[in-house]
């Protein structure tokens, strides 16, 4: 848009309730649109400028800092109930720029750009010299640990065969020598006990996602694996208003068409074996 001489922005306190409202809408937008990793929560509002918008409304130009929580992105737990990832677990932060339109009392996200980055190794060492740092997700040990854990889980499962969706976090622990991994899975149309070729299994139309935590411990002459998975109820996903005014396809997955349950279930159910 051409620059309009004399157009000035309104200065607002970063902790002003109106700014916070806009920032919370921005964080909700992140959690509703990101399809990998963990939910984020608001940590600090860095800057805010409020521009008049023609013919009506105002645009909040925001810079915000977020922190990673321990809730997987497809976990239906409200982010307010999610625990913030602590420094000793190697916290991850997000730096975001947003433009949020306020019109008729309603906030709508017009623009979003976020970068996330883990805390520095030095910072983690300061608070916990012995704590393991985040490991690359393609590390050989990480990939092996996930494969072993998922196989163990499927072997003990008397239901669907679960396929790997993503590895979301990993740490190499020196003592005892072990690999800690967190990964997401999804149910397929195969029965776990009858699978011969996992490549032929297809994800269910009505997706059921799960989130697993596993530790693979190296031992003399072998290894031990412990894995626990939390399965999430299939969640109906509502279309989100988009910047161009159109209704987007569902955020998480267009194949999810399950109507909302009459009696909403608990946020998550722990099912499946602990191996």
């Amino acid at each position: 848009a051409p620059h309009i001489p004399g157009l000035v922005y309104r200065e607002l306190d970063c902790d002003d309730p109106e700014t916070e409202q806009a920032a919370l809408v921005a964080v909700d937008y992140i959690n509703n649109h990101v399809l990998q990793g963990y939910k984020h929560t608001l940590n600090q509002i860095d800057k805010v400028k409020v521009w008049p918008r023609r013919p009506m409304g105002e645009v909040f130009e925001l810079e915000i800092d977020t922190l990673e929580t321990t809730c997987y992105i497809r976990d239906p737990t409200p982010v307010a109930n999610c625990t913030v990832r602590q420094l000793m677990e190697h916290a991850v932060e997000g730096d975001c720029d947003f433009q949020v339109l306020k019109q008729d009392g309603q906030f709508t996200v017009l623009f979003a750009k976020c970068d996330s980055s883990p805390d520095s190794a030095e910072d983690v060492r300061k608070v916990c010299p012995q704590c393991p740092l985040l490991a690359p997700l393609n590390d050989t040990k990480v990939v092996h640990a996930v494969e072993v854990a998922l196989t163990a889980f499927n072997t003990q499962s008397n239901g669907s065969y679960f396929q790997l969706v993503e590895v979301s976090r990993a740490q190499l622990v020196p003592l005892p020598p072990s690999t800690y991994v967190e990964f997401a899975v999804a149910a397929t149309d195969c029965v776990a006990a009858e699978v011969t070729d996992p490549a032929k299994c297809n994800l269910l139309a009505e997706k059921q996602y799960g989130f697993c935590k596993a530790t693979l411990t190296e031992k003399v002459g072998g290894e031990d694996v412990a894995v626990t998975c939390t399965m999430f109820q299939t969640q109906p996903v509502l279309p989100q208003p988009q910047p161009d005014g159109t209704e987007a396809s569902p955020v998480a997955d267009s194949a999810v068409t399950a109507p909302p349950p009459a009696d909403p279930p608990a946020a998550a159910l722990v099912v499946g074996p602990v191996v």
Partner: peptide, 27 residues
């Protein structure tokens, strides 16, 4: 009469509108 010399009134704390408060911890 002894008059108390006028003491300049200290200005109130300067409010920095931004950045806002840290809700958890700063990385």
């Amino acid at each position: 009469n002894v008059a108390q010399p006028s003491v300049p009134v200290a200005a109130g704390p300067v409010v920095r509108p931004c950045p806002g408060r840290i809700r958890h911890f700063k990385i």
